[in-house]
Computed example of a mutant assay.
Amino acid sequence: MFSIEHDFDATVITLVDEGPAPLQEDVILQAFEEGVVIEQFDPRKDEVLRITLSQAQLRELAAALNLPEGVYRLSPRK
């Protein structure tokens, strides 16, 4: 299950892990004009882990999900 919310300066997507245990904590993606922040709570450390991706890194990640093993470079976006 997931939800999508549009805030003033970001789109927030929350991914909820469903199904048989063990389940993972929710993943929250905040998409801003300059990049994307991915957050997930780590109960072992009692803290939120955060990764920030640029728009270019996000495009490469999306492309990588549909490509076979290898090394690639996407054409610059115009």
Rank of each mutant, 00 (worst) to 15 (best):
R73V: 07
D17L: 13
P22Q: 01
T52I: 09
L61D: 02
Y72I: 11
F32Q: 03
V48N: 04
F8Q: 14
P22N: 10
V37P: 06
T11H: 00
E69Q: 09
H6N: 14
K45A: 14
F2W: 14
Y72P: 05
Q57S: 09
F2Y: 15
L15G: 07
V27L: 10
R44Y: 01
E5F: 13
F32K: 09
L67Q: 10
Y72H: 04
D7S: 10
S75A: 07
V27C: 01
A10P: 05
V16A: 06
L67E: 08
K78M: 02
Q24F: 06
V16Y: 14
A62I: 11
I51T: 15
N66L: 13
E60C: 08
D42A: 03
I4M: 07
Y72Q: 03
A64Q: 05
P76T: 04
D9F: 11
L67D: 08
A56I: 06
R50T: 13
E69M: 13
L29Q: 00
E25T: 02
L74G: 01
L23P: 03
E39H: 11
D7W: 09
E69K: 07
P43G: 03
R73G: 00
D46K: 14
A63V: 06
P43H: 10
F41W: 12
M1I: 07
E33A: 14
D42V: 05
D46L: 01
L58Y: 10
A21N: 11
E33K: 14
N66A: 11
A21T: 08
A21K: 12
L74H: 03
V48A: 02
R77P: 05
R77N: 10
V27G: 00
R44I: 09
E33N: 13
A31V: 15
I4V: 15
A62L: 06
L29P: 04
Q30Y: 08
I13L: 13
Q55C: 05
P22K: 07
A31W: 01
E5L: 12
L61G: 07
G19D: 01
D46N: 14
T52V: 15
S3L: 09
